[in-house]
Design a protein around this nucleic acid. Sequence first.
DNA 1: TATTTTTTTTAGATTTGTCTAAATATTATT
DNA 2: AATAATATTTAGACAAATCTAAAAAAAATA
Lengths: 220, 220
Amino acid sequence: MQYSSSKENHIKAIFHLQESDGLVTTNELAAALQTKPASVTDMLKKLKQQKLLNYERYKGFKLSSEGKKVALQIIRKHRLWEYFLVEKLQFGWDEVHEIAEELEHISSVRLIDRLDEFLGFPKTDPHGDPIPDKNGKLIEIMQVPLSLLPENTPAIVSGIGDQSQEMLELLNHKQIAIGTRLEITRKFSFDQSMELKLKQSPVITLSEPVAKNIFVRYDQ
Amino acid sequence: MQYSSSKENHIKAIFHLQESDGLVTTNELAAALQTKPASVTDMLKKLKQQKLLNYERYKGFKLSSEGKKVALQIIRKHRLWEYFLVEKLQFGWDEVHEIAEELEHISSVRLIDRLDEFLGFPKTDPHGDPIPDKNGKLIEIMQVPLSLLPENTPAIVSGIGDQSQEMLELLNHKQIAIGTRLEITRKFSFDQSMELKLKQSPVITLSEPVAKNIFVRYDQ
DNA sequence: TATTTTTTTTAGATTTGTCTAAATATTATT
DNA sequence: AATAATATTTAGACAAATCTAAAAAAAATA
Ligand SMILES: [Mn+2]
Ligand SMILES: [Mn+2]
Ligand SMILES: [Mn+2]
Ligand SMILES: [Mn+2]
């Protein structure tokens, strides 16, 4: 089956929202897609009719298992293209999201499987998010927010929560990327800010909102 | 400026048709796009309004210079993606057209310029067609149809006229590709069919309709 | 040139995706 | 529980891209 870009964007956004929230609401989805609640309601009816969505009016909604399958294929495409853009075309990790937002709607399955192979079957995208395999299987990455990492414990940056331009810009400036090794040297209980030691870099300071959006796994 | 995929498909098709015909007609364009003349008329009005097209009703039409610029950028994208698919993702030259038909509508100019660089600024696509540079400059390839090549004159395949699945399949079978060196050993005046010698291949026979759609340049 | 045929355009519908404004349902607050 | 606030849906409109059927113009032919 083929779906319009707009439908695919809705499906993908519902998938991401239901990860955290379980049931998704109309206003939530409208906000995520920068559209209006009335437009969302219209689309929900169509997705329901195509059996991609479990939805009853006023009751919230979530993807059917078929809907989830579709979502995972879109996410696979999005993340593989992001990887391509960064690793092959030398884009920065803060420049690829919008382009991948278009590329993810290219329909050919053979294309994406060949791309996967060409890239060497990468496990995660440039933001540390896992790439579903061709069957839609998505691995869970064991990681904790940097804000919960104890002091003096070596860790490796493995993921980013808020991936907005602003956040990625800040991380670029602080020289933090996926794979960066670090260790918290000092935590301040007043504001939960922290000082970090990065391998071969001067000490840096991060605020709590930033630390909550950096995910790490223990080193070794 | 950004145009819808449908508009871009119209613009590109007009460009190709006017290459040969000068002025393009409504029915011609409808046939090329597998759509109806009434739909074409609707689109022509929109393209005219956007000053991409010189059009007066019942009089035929052709692209404005702005329209040509737009067309060349779409063609650039189409051909660079085809090159990528064949050279990097190992697709056959008979498998890439449809996928490129979608990829050509991805809007990012930076993406296409980076792709061009990644590919090493190729001059022609997998079918021998020249790739416009970032300014839309298109080189002319000096070539003649194989049907006009004299006997016993070494030549190199440089382009294909009819690029339909059927034609490319036939050429695959005959082991003819862009860059293939060949020489006509015998021409039959009865039907204009010919026998060819390919480097390290048995002699093959081609009919006139095929020979008219293979373009060659003289070897050396 | 008159008539027929072909081409092109117009008129009016349809589908998809979006919107605003109004109505209705649900949830929160007195 | 009644009322107020919020969330969601419905009603009706609009733009884009397409179509069919009919009208009009141009081209071909008798
Ligand atoms: Mn998208
Ligand atoms: Mn990503
Ligand atoms: Mn296209
Ligand atoms: Mn080509």
